[in-house]
Design a protein around this nucleic acid. Structure first.
Lengths: 336, 336
DNA sequence: TAACGAAATGACAACGTTGTCATTTCGCAA
DNA sequence: TTGCGAAATGACAACGTTGTCATTTCGTTA
């Protein structure tokens, strides 16, 4: 067996080995039906023997497209995993690969900068995953020939966006309380700079105001259980507090632990709802009712939107993916 | 302002606009110092005016490399996030982008199939992230011209690998128990097919056997808290059970809840160690001692290994990344 | 001013594919 | 056997870069 020392085997090498023209090899790959079976077999044999692999760069150069969608991650965290999963699966289904770049910790990356870097890479369109506010959000303009979709909570003036309906989810949770006879709802927020936290707070506020209820001062948390616990200690002393909406499950758990430590029962004395529905993974027999967002769906929608817009990059749409209330027993029906 | 209707602006267009040759534009991009300042400015102005963006395909074709590393995800889960984060950051640091494909749920993807798909994409090398056993693991041979690194718990005959030292981590936890006077250690496993679970079990067994202790029957869990709770109920009835090693923190928490419900105290009656150190995120004042793996480091090492091997794809190395024992108060020192 | 070496620039081929259009081969009816 | 249309195949250019080597321009010194 002769060793192959040539770096890359080209279609031309295959053609020579098979005794056919370059173009015939190309046809075997792209339109096999147009090649006689005997010829095709010979070409296949030659490809096999030489270890031929099509050259991506040459192909893309000729075709003018890459078959890749760019994904820019500004932050890589728990919820994002499912989203990326959705993007990746939807991409696979449609025959696209993903090209990924990520903002590094400490690095300051604007949308414009991310777009510039992406547009040097093999991508036909791109998805930005943005969980926090960013300086040039409002002024950013996507490259005219590269369909751009932003996954974020805010509306963008020129780009398509895909969002969790976080505001709606918070509103849904509040209404769930109010419809069960609660007169008010306290709120424990996540980190101040987080868009999710801001939107959830906004929805909470809106739901109360719609019913003519003055929203109480929200308690500031940081997403972790300890901050929820601290908030819970404060809330335990408020006699009018029968319902608590915490901006995530971890903090909700902290709140519940604090209430119990203060001798209060959930849900008999105080009802609690969290966000993200992930407590059951860690706590056996978790009772926490929680608003869950379909992160995976978010990713799928974003990818589909990019692919749909490949031909018309300047088109613009806004997609909202609603949340789901996962009911357990942490909310008491006061009317009963 | 005239509208640009031409699809792609090429270096040639820029050259004409700037009144220089094609090659000079190329030089402005790749070796700016070799171009006179006045010329450079003119070219830059033209690039700006026309909205020029270098064509990735043409460039890669000429250079024979892509500046991208392929990442194959066979499974996308919690721990993987940090790993991808590590890969992405290390890649950014070295000027590489990532090209990603993912096994879809239900789809059966072998290493060979993954390698075949990857080698059609713009990549100079690739990283496989493999958390479960796969059919062709032992027989797989990576493409000769594409450096391949596998992140997995097993050693591979021909490819470089990077691994958590899960076995070592489990051994470390057991020795921690034994050194504190415990005579035996019970084990709660994760899902059967999980390599992590298998390795952790192996380390546990080895540590006991080294000390001449007969390992008790391990309890089968499924990673979630409920299965840990079930295991805890069983363990509570074993009088000789003073130490429990659970294959992850969620199950460890389940075990602790069950023990408490059975009137036993942690750590006074039974000591517990978990894996992954993530309970503190959900439980306020968590006392669980846990073995933590540096997933991020895993990703960084894998990427560095790929980049280091780009010139010599057939080189082979094995990297083990050790775990860390995060001490809290869930283990009692029986000698005291 | 002429001559010279260095710096700056340019012409052209090449990377490995696919599209266009021309040519050859084939099967079949006359 | 000839002729004909369809099927199969081939020659060549083109995609947008970078490398090689040749040419022009510049600044300096004799």
């Amino acid at each position: 067996m002769a060793t192959m020392d040539k770096k890359n085997v080209s279609m031309n090498d295959v053609a020579i080995a098979a005794g056919v023209s370059l173009k015939t090899v190309s046809r075997v790959i792209n339109e096999p039906d147009s090649v006689r079976e005997s010829t095709r077999d010979r070409v296949h044999a030659a490809m096999e023997a030489l270890g031929f692999r099509a050259n991506f760069a040459a192909r893309s150069l000729k075709l003018g497209r890459y078959g890749c969608i760019g994904v820019v991650l500004f932050h890589l965290s728990g919820g994002n995993v499912d989203m990326i999963d959705g993007i990746a699966d939807a991409a696979a289904e449609r025959g696209f690969a993903l090209t990924m770049i990520k903002k590094r910790a400490g690095e300051k990356m604007t949308l414009a900068e991310a777009a510039r870097r992406m547009s040097q890479l093999p991508v036909d369109g791109m998805i930005f995953n943005l969980r926090q506010m960013i300086d040039d959000f409002d002024t950013f303009e996507a490259p005219k020939d590269l369909k751009t979709v932003i996954i974020t909570s805010m509306e963008h003036p020129t780009c398509s966006t895909v969002s969790d309906d976080q505001e709606g989810g918070a509103r849904m949770a509040c209404e769930y309380f109010l419809n069960r006879g609660h007169k008010n709802v306290y709120f424990v927020s996540g980190k101040k700079e987080s868009l999710s936290s801001q939107c959830r707070m906004k929805g909470w506020r809106a739901a109360l105001e719609t019913r003519g209820i003055e929203p109480p001062e929200p308690l500031q948390g940081d997403w972790n259980a300890d901050s929820g616990y601290a908030a819970g200690l404060v809330l335990a002393d408020k006699p009018d507090c029968t319902a608590v909406l915490a901006a995530n499950d971890c903090m909700a758990n902290g709140v519940m632990m604090a209430l119990r430590d203060k001798g209060l029962s959930v849900p008999d004395d105080v009802s609690v709802i969290g966000f993200d529905d992930e407590l059951y993974k860690t706590i056996p027999n978790s009772i926490l009712t929680s608003v869950k967002f379909r992160h995976r769906e978010l990713g799928v929608r974003a990818l589909n939107e990019v692919v749909a817009g490949l031909e018309a990059p300047s088109s613009r749409s806004r997609t909202l993916v609603s949340g789901v209330l996962v009911e357990r027993s942490s909310v008491k029906d006061l009317r009963a």
